[in-house]
Design a protein around this nucleic acid. Structure first.
Lengths: 117, 117
DNA sequence: ACCAATGCCTCGAACATCGATGTATCGGAG
DNA sequence: CTCCGATACATCGATGTTCGAGGCATTGGT
């Protein structure tokens, strides 16, 4: 663990978007997503397995990602791919994130800096 | 309404922080917070009253804000002030938000731009 | 031989949010 | 002077999400 995880609440609703983003770089299986997110975010963000797997299944149902089983020795892994529709959805969500981030910054940063300086 | 509200999920968990931020600028009553957030965020963020009031009551219980009734003609308003402890908490939450924002950007932006260009 | 890490998954409890609803006052349009 | 939309506070139940705990199996290192 490199950093300290942020308050769980902040992460709410972002799980699917983060998963889509990671999958846009390369296909991965669930556990790999957990490790990748932790690495890429320097330990700030984490997927809980109890949250991630249901989300992954939902994305699969919505056909935003596809999955197929791969054998690694006697071990089975479910590898997820970003689908075309998922790529569109990711673009949409990324734009939404940018809008949200800007809006929160305007409200929060303004309030803090008024008393930090 | 100036902009389009973002997906509700993204806003989850940020209600209290946004309220504290707005109150750090000036004391306000509930309905005023609703209007201020909408104005400051250009319609991107909105407090639902059913969410805001319980949150405000919770912040009051935790002594992060204080409240007192003010009369405006025959009308009663409950005006909320940011307390000292609330100011500390806001600073803490603002720092956490900055950390979260940076982490998400690293994951999301990287993924999107790889396919936008 | 054992144990930690990998790997997929489900379940129920806990929690937060939202829409609907209720009450009441105020100001302006007709 | 009457009606209605905006202001203003608040609660409640339905809904949805998240998480911790647990189950099960394999693999690699000691």
């Amino acid at each position: 663990m490199i950093g300290v995880p942020v308050d769980r609440d902040l992460q709410k609703g972002s799980t699917a978007t983060l998963a889509l983003s990671l999958l846009s770089r390369s296909p991965m299986h669930g556990y790999q997503l957990v490790k990748e997110l932790e690495a890429k975010s320097k330990g700030v963000l984490t997927f809980k397995e109890g949250t991630l797997y249901p989300v992954l299944h939902a994305l699969e149902r919505e056909e935003l990602i596809t999955a197929h089983w791969e054998a690694d020795g006697g071990r089975e892994r479910k590898v997820y791919h970003l689908a075309e529709r998922g790529r569109d959805e990711l673009r949409r969500r990324a734009a939404e994130w940018a809008e949200f981030r800007t809006a929160v910054d305007t409200v929060v940063q303004g309030g803090v800096f008024a008393y930090v300086g």
